[in-house]
Write a protein that binds this DNA or RNA. Structure first.
Lengths: 197, 197
DNA sequence: CATCGTTATGTACGCTCGTACACATGGGAT
DNA sequence: ATCCCATGTGTACGAGCGTACATAACGATG
């Protein structure tokens, strides 16, 4: 028994669950597969997470933090001087261009909320978190629209195997931003600014 | 054995599969559950659909036709005179406002393609179908953007239990359509055709 | 009518699953 | 030092799963 009284056991199980979902999908997530991946006995996973929903909630929360980390690594997103659509497109490109299993994992857990009410609040937290970040730069309606189109673009990339087109994303995102005065600085101006609302 | 030589057996199995997914989700889809729902013996489902992927492909195809039927019921979508964003928002509202199980079913099968390569082509067909319809009204880039934001709005509605806001959808969709200048007014009259690519 | 291949049916095998539960262990309170 | 209980571990049970397969019914063909 080399591992009795392991204070990080719980965290290691969560990490293992994320790896399992990334590799086999949610369908491959079980107490047993997670236990094997974490190299702990079966009873350990059932002890720390009585139900699979509990485990998935924990994993989804951690995955959300992963995305938040990517966002936090781009302070330009919060810079009122920066070109928001271009920055968003760049961040999305980094997220999609890196280890795609991370993105697939996030969306798989995210969409599992469709059928598992226990996951709904966590999924909502994520959308609200990104939305709040964007609302600070624009307005609530635009923020929700940006989140929607980000989701849609991600799905298109994930489902159709077409490579991510950052320029396309920037263009589409730019159309959604109601173009207040902040465009003059570094704006590439490929679009005529829409009429101010 | 009242039902030997049943020529519609296969179709009844597909219908049953769709009902099962609508009620229990994809996780609840199995040869046995479908057999029970269709009131046929287990061997019958395995005979007509050797693998679950085969069955899901058939079900997804049929679900796609269901959405296409909703679209076809709105000829205004193809009318160059009509207000495209408003019409799209209305169609989406009808789709989301009706029997929500249909929408959930479609998205569940649609998103199952993330992990099941066999479903990818069918999912791609759906996106391309809607995209082609919209491209005829605008341009390819705008069409893809519209599909993306439609997907995103649907997901927001499905995942957050917030009711569908048709006015919000119309506003967001309108921003994506490259109508120079006249975003504010809801004037349906002059919507110049695709100005830019 | 006899034959044959397709379609339909019932059953069984091996597997994984969630869950329960009895038992071991060791740190912290007394 | 002793006890207690949260934590850790192994095992077993019943259920559902995909799949395989032997057999039966039936329409088509000769």
């Amino acid at each position: 028994m080399p591992r009795r009284h392991d204070p990080e056991r719980r965290q290691r199980i969560i990490d293992a669950a994320i790896r399992v979902v990334g590799q086999k999908g949610i369908a491959g997530l079980s107490h047993r597969t997670v236990a094997a991946e974490a190299d702990v006995p079966l009873g350990s996973t059932t002890y720390h997470f009585a139900t699979l929903d509990d485990l998935m909630v924990a994993a989804l929360r951690q995955a959300n933090e992963g995305f938040a980390r990517v966002v936090a690594a781009h302070p330009a997103l919060s810079d009122p001087e920066a070109d928001l659509p271009a920055e968003l497109a760049r961040v999305l490109g980094e997220w999609l261009g890196g280890d795609r299993t991370g993105v697939e994992l996030e969306y798989e857990l995210y969409l599992a909320a469709l059928r598992r009410p226990a996951l709904r609040p966590v999924a909502a937290e994520w959308a609200e978190g990104v939305g709040a970040l964007l609302a600070a730069r624009t307005d609530p309606v635009t923020a929700r629209a940006l989140v929607a189109v980000l989701d849609g673009i991600c799905l298109q990339v994930l489902l159709t195997d077409t490579p991510y087109d950052e320029e396309y994303a920037r263009e589409v995102l730019a159309r959604l931003v109601p173009a207040p005065g902040t465009r003059d600085g570094r704006g590439p101006g490929s679009l005529p600014p829409a009429a101010a609302g």
